[in-house]
Computed example of a mutant assay.
Amino acid sequence: MGYRTIGKQLGEKAATASAIIRKWKMFKMIVYLPRSGAPCKISPRGASMIMRKVRDQPRTTRQDLVNDLKRAGTTVSKKTISNTLRRHGFKSCSTRKVPLLKPAHVQARLKFANEHLDDPEEEWEKVMWSDETKIELFGLNSTCCVWRKKKDEYNPKNTIPTGKHGGGNIILWGCFSAKGTGRLHRIEGRMDGAMYCEILATTSFPQ
């Protein structure tokens, strides 16, 4: 059959069928052959140094890495740095924002999760979840980029702790349960036990 007929039956272009057949006749295989290309400017030792630094200091910039390699006798561009990091599974990402927790808080939350891991669904229907959030009124929260792998987004090195209070913002309290969401409540001043009880007394859910 001709290339056009083969391509039509396989849903490919005639040029694709032609290229595959020519490759088979010449090399007796159809896999992609390695291409020569330009040699990498960064040696394996230099790449190891880059990987070690971004693992220890994820907020290192590409210019910092360019300067480090230059002091070691290798001159490269920031694009070359990016390509090397991507080949090793790293990419530039914004830092994740996580609650500012002390180690004791982390352990308490983990303990709670383990204790209630096997609770039946009916028990969770009796639970109401609540939290406060800060909304900026002026400007934007600062952002920062880190070099990390996909699975390391919540590694403490790659996050920015956030607080609940600050200037130029409002604090809102909200809640939800199996019945739905409650009303938002603006917090004026500092939250205490009396204010919390008052908020709960005025919170309603869909019946």
Score class of each variant (00 low, 15 high):
K25V: 06
K28L: 13
I30M: 12
P34G: 00
S36A: 11
A38W: 13
P39C: 07
P39S: 09
C40L: 04
C40E: 10
K41C: 03
I42T: 13
R45I: 04
G46C: 04
M49A: 15
I50H: 00
M51S: 08
R52H: 13
R52D: 15
V54I: 04
V54K: 02
V54R: 03
D56P: 01
R62W: 03
D64A: 14
D68T: 04
G73C: 02
T75D: 11
K79R: 08
K79C: 09
I81C: 06
N83Y: 09
R87M: 05
F90I: 06
C93T: 07
T95G: 04
R96H: 13
R96F: 07
L100D: 00
L100W: 00
L100R: 01
A104D: 07
A104W: 01
A113C: 14
N114C: 10
E115S: 00
H116Q: 06
L117W: 07
L117M: 08
P120T: 03
P120F: 03
E123M: 14
W124T: 05
E132S: 04
K134A: 10
K134V: 08
E136A: 11
L140I: 02
R148W: 04
R148N: 07
K149N: 03
K150V: 10
K150S: 12
K151Q: 10
D152R: 09
D152E: 15
E153S: 14
Y154V: 01
Y154N: 11
N155R: 03
P156Q: 02
T159P: 01
I160Y: 07
H165W: 12
